[in-house]
Amino acid sequence: MAEARALAAGYLDWLARERRAAANTVEAYGLDLRDFLAFLTGHLGEEPDLAALAALRPADIRAFLAARANAGAGNATRARQLAAIRGFLRHLARTCGLSPLAIANIRGPRAKPPVPRALTPEQAKEVAARTGSIHQPGHAESPAEQAARDTALFTLLYGCGLRIAEALALDVRDAPLPGSQAALRVTGKGGKQRLVPVLPAVREAIAAYLVERGGAPPEAPLFRGTRGARLDPAVAQRAMRHYRRLAGLPEHATPHALRHSFATHLLGGGADLRAIQELLGHASLSTTQRYTRVDAAALLETWRRAHPRAG
């Protein structure tokens, strides 16, 4: 399997470097391909090489998916695993001349996308404004700088609907500051850029953080960690987790829930779905349409609480 593992490693490296796939995607695909190659070793009776991969047929892929289903893998997991295999074999077709017959006419299980879980407007405002006020014990950072940074970061996530990776990729030169009306240029998935308007509250929070932080060159990371490097997403997630436990907020109060809240609250306020799609950087309108289900659920809950005959 050494050759197959090397081929898979080459594909994952290409995925990360050329396609700029998210680190979580690369890691998940790596685990999926490891499972697939291990299955093929037992299924074919020997460790697969390039010739064995070239000889695969749709029945072999279906056998793998069936085995994963029997092991308890859900539709979403198997759909992702098929996507990893499809991408891998297509990569081999481009780089090694392999004919990807095995993936012809195979449709994966349809995974029903989960309904995004948003916070209430009050909860989202509280998280954005107050998370930074809770100092996390054991941190070597200045408590004042950490507080200002976390407040700025979470205010930005809720105020602009950014993914946490998008926010943490910003440099000091990108910082939206008071006195400017310029939109924030954000680089999203696949390197696609979009412009996002910035609320005064976001500009003020970021300005306060930069004052607390002190001078920094334009090319430095906007949000920095203890040693001055770009802030790790896990640190931001830990800060949110620490605060929500102290504040009694629900478990779905995460940094990404602020992005969901941004979209849900805009939709509830009458914003156009196409406009929300552009602000979020969604490639497909169908992805944005998930928020209509959230809004409908909120309306139904309001009806149940308010209508005299709902009980």
Rank of each mutant, 00 (worst) to 15 (best):
T131H: 01
V127K: 02
R117M: 07
I106C: 10
V127H: 03
E126V: 00
A124W: 02
P121Q: 00
S133G: 14
T131P: 09
A124V: 10
T120D: 07
A124Y: 02
A124C: 03
P116W: 07
K125G: 11
G108T: 00
R107Y: 10
R107K: 15
T131F: 10
E126W: 01
R110E: 12
R130M: 04
K112W: 01
P114K: 15
R110G: 13
Q123D: 04
E126H: 07
Q123Y: 07
R107Q: 14
K112V: 15
T120A: 05
I134K: 14
R110N: 13
S133D: 15
L101Q: 13
A102V: 01
R110H: 11
I103K: 09
I134F: 15
N105D: 15
P114M: 02
A118I: 04
K125C: 03
N105A: 15
A128S: 12
K125D: 11
P114G: 14
L119G: 01
R117G: 06
V115N: 00
R107T: 14
P114N: 11
P121L: 02
V127D: 00
R107D: 12
E122A: 11
A102Y: 07
A128N: 10
L119H: 05
R110M: 02
P109N: 10
T131L: 14
R117V: 09
R110K: 15
I106Y: 13
K112F: 06
K125F: 03
P109Q: 10
A118D: 05
T120M: 07
N105S: 13
A128H: 06
G108D: 07
K112L: 13
A129I: 04
K112H: 14
A128V: 12
E122D: 03
R107H: 14
N105P: 10
Q123F: 04
K125M: 02
P114H: 11
I103P: 04
R107M: 08
T131D: 07
P109S: 07
I103N: 01
R117F: 06
P113F: 00
K112Y: 10
R107E: 15
S133P: 10
P113R: 07
N105C: 11
I134R: 15
E122S: 01
R107W: 10
